[in-house]
Amino acid sequence: MIDFQRLARWMDDTGLPGKGAPIEHRFLSGGTQNEIYEIVRGDERCVIRIPPPEAPADRDEGILREWRIIEALDGTDVPHTEAVAVCPDASVLGRPFYLMGFVEGWSPMGRTTWPAPFDTDLRARAGLGHQLAEGIALLSKVDWRARGLHDLGRPDGFHDRQVDRWTRFLNRIKGRELPGFDEAAAWLRARRPLDYIPGIMHGDYQFANVMYRDGAPARLAALVDWEMGTVGDPKLDLAWMIQSWPDDTDAPEASEAGYVDLRGMPSRDRLLAHYAEVSGRQVDDIDYYIVLARWKLAVVLEQGYQRAGDDETLQAFGPIVLDLMKGAAELAETSGYRS
């Protein structure tokens, strides 16, 4: 539990608004990586993001990386949370933390249905998909060097490292064979994108990691949860977003394509066209990115499955991993992309 009195003293010393007022707080979410609380002091409202005491030591560095990204987004047209203040000194609350602006709106995460009017108005729902694609299209246009993120990642040789890096990762955790892994890996080794323009990556871009404004039309309020943020290839975010997107979003099975109901959403081709228009990037090589996204996501989820134990949520990753790897190998086999 956060010592909110110590937090109040630090906020006062930092010169933040609301000096001397008591802190009202409300737990928003949390897990093994971060805890998030709403903070209210008088008329001021913000959110604290801090690793819990039991989080791995590298989360201290991670929380400061997150801060660098949201601070860099200030003044851009990327929907984002306001960067309020950061504390790298772990002696204040036990871990480094930062404060960000409170976002009015809603998250698709944890919902069984879309909120009104998107639950029944499929034309309005289409805007949610367009806005999702637009978020990373705008992100891809940010001048990361000018924003001080020149040392955030390792953009040089990004694609040269992917297969070797994730193959080594899988070998460390391997507990079973993953059919299709070798075939997709060989296909990726033999190919590269048509062009590679480094930019800021979210790293886990999907409906679960954005917020929308209340009401229609659909308006993206903020990209959130920057734990995997880096400088790399932004088009991998696009592929991450659409790798399981159904070809026909009007079909009944689109309601079961993921953790949200995709009926009424734009088709994959329309999303690709919208991304290309807003970002100014070509998407003719999207098959390469989708194979990489499925292959990589399968490896990432396999780690959770291998340590699942009695955790039913992690156990459920088992068949998902196999489907993703199969999908990566099948696309690699049938794609006409040669680079």
Score class of each variant (00 low, 15 high):
37 Y>G: 09
305 Y>R: 15
4 F>A: 11
288 Y>R: 05
208 A>C: 02
147 R>I: 10
8 A>P: 09
332 A>G: 15
182 D>N: 05
288 Y>E: 08
256 E>C: 05
176 R>H: 09
52 P>Q: 10
339 S>R: 11
92 V>L: 07
123 R>D: 15
88 P>Y: 13
164 D>G: 15
259 Y>N: 08
134 E>Y: 01
107 S>E: 12
154 R>G: 01
42 G>A: 05
302 E>T: 15
48 I>H: 07
194 L>M: 13
133 A>V: 13
326 K>M: 05
280 G>H: 11
228 M>F: 15
297 L>F: 09
87 C>Y: 05
255 S>F: 01
106 W>D: 10
102 F>E: 01
21 A>D: 13
245 W>G: 08
89 D>T: 06
329 A>I: 09
162 Q>G: 06
181 F>R: 11
190 A>F: 07
112 T>M: 12
252 P>W: 07
89 D>P: 02
216 A>D: 03
187 W>T: 02
326 K>I: 00
314 L>V: 00
249 T>Y: 07
174 K>M: 11
109 M>S: 12
236 L>P: 00
81 T>M: 07
31 G>N: 02
144 W>Q: 03
132 L>V: 02
303 Q>R: 14
212 Y>T: 08
178 L>R: 12
3 D>T: 13
294 R>I: 02
253 E>C: 03
80 H>N: 14
261 D>C: 10
197 I>G: 02
63 I>Q: 03
193 P>E: 07
207 F>I: 03
119 D>A: 11
38 E>C: 07
338 R>L: 13
84 V>D: 06
293 A>D: 07
80 H>V: 10
52 P>C: 12
128 L>R: 04
228 M>H: 06
87 C>T: 03
180 G>L: 11
207 F>W: 14
270 R>G: 00
